[in-house]
Design a protein around this nucleic acid. Structure first.
Lengths: 369, 369
DNA sequence: TTGTAAGCGTTATCAA
DNA sequence: TTGATAACGCTTACAA
C-alpha cells in the first residue's frame, strides 16, 4: 500500500495557487545563524569546529541561534571549501548476497564509528556497470573508493589509478592481488582457498571430486577457487577432479539441481562412477544439495560428501552441520574500514603489509565431509 | 591478508624526500579542460550538459581535452551551484538481514537506473543512532531521505519535518502509517499481517497458538505483528494465543531454542498443554524451529505447525516447504525508488495515494501448517 | 555561439 | 576574540 495523502507538500508548485505567497522555507545556512546571533558566519563556523576559540558569551548566543534555526551544515559546501571529504564509496557485486551484505555491514559499522559516510553501489556482477559506477562515485571526491575484487575493465583501472594518484584511497577487497599490486587490497587468495577445499576432501579419503562452480558468470572469485581446487587435486596421485557449473537460478534451488544432475549422470546406460565428494562455490549451493540428498535418502557423507564455502549461519544449524570454509565476510569489511580510518590519521600508506590471520579462510569440518 | 606494499603512494608526504618536487597531481577541473581546449569553462560546461549549443568544431576540441585530462565532474560543486542533488539517503536497521538487504537492492537498482546515487546508513535497530544518522545524512542535502518504519525519536521527527518542508522528500518504508501520516510511506500494515497469520492458523483448525516475537528489542514491526496476531486470535471463540520472545542470538539458533523451550514447558510436573501452532517473527526463526523438530523427530505440522514470515528462499527449498507470509522485501525498495523518481519528474506529491496490491503480504501455504 | 560576472555555503588566511 | 576577503568548482543569467 502506497500512500502519501497528507503532510506538507514538498514542492511549492503544488501549493494552492490562491494561498499566501508564503516563501518556501529554505534550509538555514551559516548566514542565517550568524544573523540571528548577531555575529558573522566565521564566528559560527568557528564555534562549530573549534569552540574553544570563541568567547563563552558569544558561544552561548551562537548555540541558541543554532538551535533556533535548526541548522544542519551543508556538506557539499564544506567539502568544496576544505577539499576533504568524509565519504567512502564502495562497489559490491550484489547487496542481497549475504556474503557481501555482511561485508558492507562490517564496513559501515567501522566507518560510521570514525565519522565517515558510505556511498554504496552494486554492480550486479557486471564489469561494465562497475566502470560506470566508478566514474559516478569518483565525482563525489570520496576519501576512499572500495571496489570488490581485482578484475576491472581497462578503463576502470585507468580511472582508479588517476584517482589514486590524485589522493583518493583505492582499496580492492575480497581478493588477494598478485605480487605487484596497483592498489591496496584486503582479502585472501581464492586459489589457495580452493586448494584448501580439495586437500581437505583428499585427506578424508575421497578420490573422485567435483567442484560445483557458481552459476554467475562474473563471479571470478568462485571460478578461481575452482582453479585452485583442480590444481591441488591434480598434484596428488589417483585423484580425479572435475568442475561443473551450477545454474544461474536461486542458489539453494541450483544446489538441489546440481546434485540431482550428478546422480542422474551416474545411472542409466553409460554409467559413470559417481563423485564421492562435492565442493561448492558457496554455502547456499551446498545447502541445496544437502536438502536434495535428504529428500532422496542419500546418506551424507557416506554416499556423498558435501563441502560448502562461506560459513553462512545455516550451515552450522542444519543437523550435524555442513562442513565449510569460513570466509571472513564481516571481518573484511571491518578491516577495510579500519585501514581507511588509519590512513586518515596519517598512517603511512604502506603500513598494511602485515598479514592478518583473521582474514585467512579456515576449514570448518562438521558432519558432511 | 592485508597488503599494500606497492603502487603509487597516495600521500605526497610519503614520497622519498630527495625526489623531484613533482607536484601532487590534482584532479582536473573544468578550468583544466577549458585551458587545454582553448575555451572558457562555460563552453566545456555547456558541452557536458547541452552539447547541441556548442559549435561542432569547438565540441570536437572540447571532447579531446576531456579525454586528455581525464576529467570527472565534481559533484559537490555541481550541487552547490544548482541546488539539485541526485543523491538519495537511506537508513535501514541492518544491512546484513536479508530482509533489508533485498529492499536496498531493489532501491539501489531502481535509483541507479534513474541516475540517483545511494547513501546508506544502518541504525542497528537503534533510534538514537537513527537520529544521528538523519542529521548526518541531511547534511548532504539529499534529494530524498528514506527511513525504515514510523518509530523515531521526537528530535528525529523534527529534523525530518524541517527537511521535508525545505524540499527534501521524506519516505518511511516498510510500514503503513496511521490515518494522518506526516510523511510519505511505502509498506504495509504489520498488525494486519499478524492477524493474517493468526487467521490462517485458526482456519487450519489449530486452537492453541503462539507468536514467537523477534528477540531484537527495537524490531517494532515484528512486535506489531504479534499484537495483530493476538488480537485476531482473541476475536475468535475458543482460541488461546500467547506471545513468547525469541533470544537475541543468531535467529536460526534462536528458533531452535524456542521450540526446545516450549516443548520443555509442556513436559515435567506442571505439564501445560503444548501449543499446536507457532507463528514466527521471521523465517529464520521458523527454519530453526523446523530443524529442531526434525532432530527431535517431531512431525510437522501434525504435532506442531510452523508459520514463518518473509518468504526467504530457504523456506521454499526445505522439503515440502515452510509455510510463510511473503513480504515484499524487494518490491518495497523498488516502489520507493520509483516513487522518488516520479517526484523528480514533477509528479504531484500526493500521487501515491494508490494502493498497490504488490506490496500486500500474502500467505504462502506449504507443508508446515 | 561564446564569454563575463555573480553566486551557491562553507572554510583558510590574514588583519583588526 | 572576531571579522573581512578570497577561495573551492561549478552553473545560472545575461551580455557580446
Amino acid at each position: 500500500m502506497i500512500s502519501s495523502s497528507l503532510g506538507t507538500p514538498a514542492n511549492p508548485a503544488e501549493e494552492k495557487s490562491g494561498a499566501q505567497p508564503q516563501p518556501q522555507p529554505r534550509r538555514s545556512t551559516l548566514a542565517d545563524v550568524a544573523r540571528h546571533a548577531g555575529v558573522t558566519t566565521m564566528t559560527v563556523s568557528r564555534f562549530l569546529r573549534t569552540p574553544e576559540q570563541v568567547a563563552p558569551l558569544t558561544a552561548q548566543r551562537v548555540e541558541v541561534s543554532l538551535k533556533h534555526t535548526g541548522y544542519v551544515a551543508n556538506k557539499q559546501a564544506g567539502i568544496l571549501a576544505t577539499g576533504h571529504s568524509s565519504m567512502v564509496a564502495a562497489i559490491i557485486p550484489n547487496i542481497a548476497h549475504s556474503i557481501f551484505s555482511e561485508t558492507i555491514q562490517g564496513l559501515s559499522d567501522t566507518l560510521e564509528a570514525q565519522g565517515f559516510e558510505l556511498l554504496l553501489a552494486s554492480s550486479d556482477y557486471s564489469l561494465e556497470r562497475e566502470q560506470k559506477q566508478i566514474r559516478a562515485l569518483l565525482g563525489w571526491n570520496p576519501f576512499a573508493l572500495v571496489v570488490t575484487g581485482r578484475h576491472h575493465t581497462p578503463d576502470s583501472i585507468r580511472l582508479l589509478l588517476a584517482a589514486q594518484s590524485a589522493g583518493t584511497l583505492v582499496v580492492e577487497m575480497w581478493d588477494q592481488t598478485g605480487s605487484r599490486p596497483e592498489f591496496a587490497h584486503i582479502g585472501f587468495d581464492h586459489t589457495a582457498a580452493g586448494a584448501l577445499m580439495a586437500r581437505h576432501l583428499i585427506a578424508q579419503g575421497y578420490t573422485r571430486l567435483v567442484y560445483v562452480d557458481s552459476g554467475v558468470a562474473e563471479d571470478f572469485r568462485a571460478h578461481e577457487r575452482g582453479v585452485g581446487f583442480v590444481q591441488a587435486a591434480a598434484a596428488q596421485q589417483g585423484i580425479k577432479a572435475q568442475v561443473v557449473r551450477a545454474g544461474a537460478s536461486e542458489p539453494i534451488a541450483a544446489g538441489r539441481a546440481v546434485l540431482q544432475k550428478l546422480l542422474g549422470a551416474g545411472s542409466g546406460k553409460a554409467k559413470k562412477p559417481l563423485p564421492q565428494a562435492l565442493a561448492f562455490a558457496n554455502d547456499h549451493l551446498a545447502v541445496g544439495a544437502w536438502l536434495q540428498a535428504q529428500d532422496l535418502r542419500i546418506s551424507v557423507p557416506e554416499q556423498i560428501a558435501l563441502l560448502g564455502f562461506g560459513d553462512f549461519p545455516i550451515t552450522g544449524q542444519i543437523s550435524g552441520g555442513i562442513s565449510t570454509i569460513a570466509a571472513p565476510r564481516f571481518a573484511i569489511g571491518q578491516a577495510v574500514g579500519r585501514w581507511i580510518a588509519r590512513q586518515k590519521k596519517g598512517a603511512p600508506w604502506a603500513d598494511g603489509v602485515t598479514a592478518s590471520p583473521l582474514l585467512e579462510p579456515v576449514l570448518v569440518q562438521r558432519r558432511t565431509t
